[in-house]
Amino acid sequence: MTGAELDKDVRRDLGALSSDNATEVARHLVMVAALLDEDPQRALEHARVAQRRAGRVGAVREAAGLAAYRAGQYDEALRELRTARRITGSQVHLPVMADCERGLGRPERALEAAASPEAARLDRAGQLELAMVVAGARGDLGQHDAAVLVLQLPELDGRVPADLAETQDRLREAYDDALVAAGRPPRRRAAPAGGPVEEVDDGVVSWEEE
């Protein structure tokens, strides 16, 4: 890892650092990205080192916040992402921040974040992410029918741009989970390995696979 693997915008943000420090911070950020899925705790260790070396760089605080979130350190994640927001002015991580509130046992605060003016400025991907967090918060509060309603979005069945395909899959999974929590059958049940998918007739049309 040389640090050159970083996105050029992030490398530009590191330009205010000394050359040696920028290189070291970049290496740690590359390791954060590489480890985030398979070993969140190690990713967080790298993120903390980068944060200590470059705490005034928004991209570094974002990386630290996301790594802490994935490692289940929700207090730390909120602190880092709030700092990143102050530095960059970006609301892109608002859904993650709201989910941190859920992780800390504060679903009401997650709902407050979702109702904030900042939430209205999210792009469509961010809005879908936030809808899933809101549904989870409603479920935390025992409001399971409300959780189902939150997720009844056009993207459940409609075609979406390629960059929303993964989000659409997770939206569909979240909707099935919400239906089950509300005491209703999911729209599509998993089939045995190699077998056909079982369509569920619950009065709601199941989606077609793209």
Rank of each mutant, 00 (worst) to 15 (best):
L6Q: 07
R11G: 04
D13R: 14
D13V: 05
L14W: 04
S18H: 10
D20S: 15
E24S: 07
E24Y: 05
V25F: 09
V25T: 05
R27K: 15
A43H: 01
E45W: 02
R48H: 11
V49E: 15
A50N: 01
Q51C: 09
G55M: 11
V60D: 04
V60G: 03
R61F: 01
E62V: 12
A63R: 01
A63C: 07
G65Y: 04
L66G: 00
A67K: 01
Y69C: 07
R70S: 06
L78H: 01
L78I: 11
D99M: 00
D99E: 10
C100H: 04
E101N: 06
G103K: 00
A110H: 09
E112M: 10
E118W: 07
R121E: 15
R124N: 09
A125Y: 07
G126T: 08
L128N: 08
M132L: 09
M132T: 01
A135E: 04
Q143E: 15
Q143V: 01
D145M: 05
L151R: 01
L153G: 03
L156Y: 08
D163T: 12
L164V: 06
D169Q: 14
R170W: 06
R170H: 08
D176R: 14
D177F: 02
A178R: 03
A181W: 03
A182D: 11
P185G: 14
P186Y: 13
R189C: 10
W207A: 14
E208Q: 13
